[in-house]
Write a protein that binds this DNA or RNA. Structure first.
Length: 612
DNA sequence: ATAGGGTTAG
């Protein structure tokens, strides 16, 4: 850094220096000179230039001080620059406050003002600010501006307000790829992927972001096979960018689609520009969830400078593989590198402790997380800790935490506790918990009933289950309808409940019948498939989709294909028993992935690296 | 100037 020759510094000279957008230390020197030589009073625009420079070098607070002490009312440009800087911070409400101040000082906002303030309204908690600004933009006639209208669609999309987004879109005289993409995003955020797809196909022009919106929409709606189909189709038009690859990897992780994931890994390896912290994090997660913690480690080890996300992904991966000690080791390595864990990192390591029975470690992390790393335990952490204590058999202690925690425990906490009762076959403790819940619940909250019914179901008390179910009455959530995935020679097949669409469905059903009989499951086959009605039937058919997948896999395995079964085994002791039996009768090793854990069935036994 | 991303107990 060169110090300036101090002898002949004029306002004009300084103005020229500032227009070159110098670095922060030079700005500070120039600022000092302006003060020392009282140049601000002679040339007011120097202060404007200074603010501009401070914002350019991301020194928001310095810019803000100058801005707030502005003697005359600032130019619209300056208001806009301040709002733009704050709107880049994502969750700041400053742009809206500035906007209000601007209106109060009689300054007239222009189309840039509206664009920035509307964009920042998209990150607020409610749509209210956005609606106010929308109204003012209408009054000012600024809606005719493409950028303003587009940012409005984006803002309504962020709140999943499809109707409002459409209304703005329909009233536009001309639209561009931003308007269309934001509209697609509104449908995607609203969970309506079929409408999103319709609009997507109607688009006169698409770009990589339009594809990204579709693919990420599918992923967040749990439609992973569709996400991968779009990912595949995208290659005809565009090369995938970082965001698309991260989404596709997430789809692979959720499907357990190892071969696709490996292919994407190869693609990333061949292109330096795609090798980022985000793609590495997604790769680690994909490999871990596809059962290849070894490959996850290889990716992790190759990263030159690991950040908190890389570590978090690795730690969570080790945890779902039941490697709690190793998760703690990596966690401590991370601390040694002076990286501060976030709430998800801690959740990952607590989960590792929970599934490896590391009660001491887990407790000390849980009790010191706030003081050591400033992460205040959220309900998720309490859920995890109750799970940890419960699995280790400390039912009373876990119950005590649930009763005394500062946040109202949610259904997850109670489920963890009741699941612990189930693991330790302690029905009476479970009923004590349920009694406590029923006494809390004056309004007839049916969540308790669901828990109770699940507890009975998991202990095989079917008579009690239907008793509780009848008392509950009708209620269903169509989003929860199960589907199962199985990978056969690298291709993932999806089975929905009571599937009739699969081209080989008759053959598959026949095979299923054969398996069920062969493993001595005939009685259950009737119960599951045909005899139930209402909710029981729903749950039963959901299991049935898994069984179809299992049957399909076995059909192909007989022909020499490699198979992997990926499905949630949560409440499905039924499937567990079936897989155990198959592994014994057919003498075959079967690997199954639960949402968060791997189970290997071999010779009639299940090992899931789990502690209980 | 405006649109897009992963890591979470059961």
């Amino acid at each position: 850094m060169q110090p300036f020759a101090v002898s002949h510094i004029s306002g004009r000279f300084i103005s020229q220096l500032l227009s070159r957008r110098p670095g922060i230390s030079q700005i500070k020197q120039i600022h000092a000179q302006i003060i020392v030589r009282s140049l601000a009073s002679t040339r007011l625009s120097l202060i404007d230039s200074l603010i501009h420079c401070y914002l350019h070098s991301k020194s928001l607070s310095s810019a803000r001080i100058l801005f707030d002490n502005h003697r005359s009312s600032p130019l619209v440009l300056l208001w806009n620059l301040m709002m733009r800087a704050y709107s880049k911070l994502q969750c700041s409400s400053e742009p809206f406050s500035l906007f209000r101040r601007m209106i109060d000082t009689q300054a007239k906002p222009d189309e840039y003002t509206f664009t920035f303030v509307i964009t920042s309204c998209a990150h607020q908690d409610t749509v209210l600010c956005g609606q106010v600004v929308h109204g003012m933009a209408v009054k000012n006639g600024d809606l005719l501006n493409l950028y303003v209208a587009n940012s409005l669609i984006g803002m309504y999309a962020a709140f999943a307000r499809v109707g409002d987004a459409c209304k703005v879109f329909d009233e536009m005289s001309n639209t561009d790829v931003f308007s269309w993409t934001s509209l697609v995003s509104a449908y995607a955020k609203n969970g309506d992927m079929s409408k999103a797809g319709e609009v997507f196909r109607e688009m006169p022009l698409r770009n990589d972001v339009s594809w990204a919106v579709m693919i990420s929409g599918f992923v967040s709606s749990g439609m992973y096979t569709e996400a991968l189909r779009y990912f595949h189709d995208m290659f005809c038009e565009f090369n995938p960018n970082e965001a698309v690859l991260v989404c596709a990897l997430s789809a692979c992780a959720n499907l357990g689609c190892l071969d696709q994931g490996k292919w994407i890994h190869g693609y990333i390896d061949s292109n330096r520009a795609l090798q980022s912290s985000n793609t590495m994090t997604a790769l680690i997660d994909m490999y871990a969830k596809c059962g290849r913690i070894d490959c996850a480690y290889l990716v992790f080890d190759k990263i030159a400078r690991r950040d908190i996300h890389n570590y978090t992904s690795m730690i969570s991966g080790l945890s779902i593989h039941g490697q709690g000690e190793e998760a703690i080791r990596v966690f401590q390595q991370m601390l040694a590198e002076k990286l501060k864990p976030n709430d998800i990192t801690i959740l990952g390591v607590l989960n590792g402790c929970s599934h490896s029975g590391l009660v001491q470690h887990g407790s000390s992390i849980f009790y010191s997380m706030a003081s050591s790393w400033g992460v205040v335990p959220k309900i998720e952490h309490y859920g995890c800790y109750v799970d940890l204590l419960g699995r280790a058999g400390y039912l009373a202690k876990a119950f005590g935490i649930a009763k005394s925690m500062p946040i109202n425990p949610d259904v997850v906490v109670w489920r963890a506790l009741l699941s612990a009762c189930r693991i330790h076959s302690n029905l009476s403790f479970g009923e004590r918990v349920i009694a406590y819940l029923q006494q809390l619940d004056c309004g007839g909250y049916s969540g308790t009933q669901v828990l109770l019914s699940n507890l009975y179901a998991s202990l095989g008390k079917w008579g009690k289950v239907s008793q509780v179910r009848k008392a509950m009455g009708k209620q269903k959530n169509p989003a929860d309808i199960g589907c199962s995935w199985i990978e056969v020679d690298g291709v993932v097949h999806e089975f929905r409940v009571s599937d009739v669409l699969h081209p080989q469905i008759a053959e598959i059903r026949e095979k299923l019948g054969e398996i069920l009989i062969r493993v001595g499951y005939a009685a259950d086959a009737t119960r599951v498939s045909f005899d139930l009605c209402g909710e029981d039937r729903e749950q039963a058919v959901a299991w049935h989709s898994e069984k179809l997948a299992i049957a399909y896999g076995l059909m192909n395995a007989a022909a020499g294909a490699s198979i992997r079964i990926m499905k949630n085994l949560r409440t499905c002791e039924d499937c567990h028993a079936l897989l155990k039996a198959i592994s014994e009768v057919y003498d075959r090793e079967i690997v199954v992935r639960d949402r968060a854990r791997f189970h290997t069935f071999r010779r009639g036994k299940c090992s899931c690296n789990d502690y209980w």
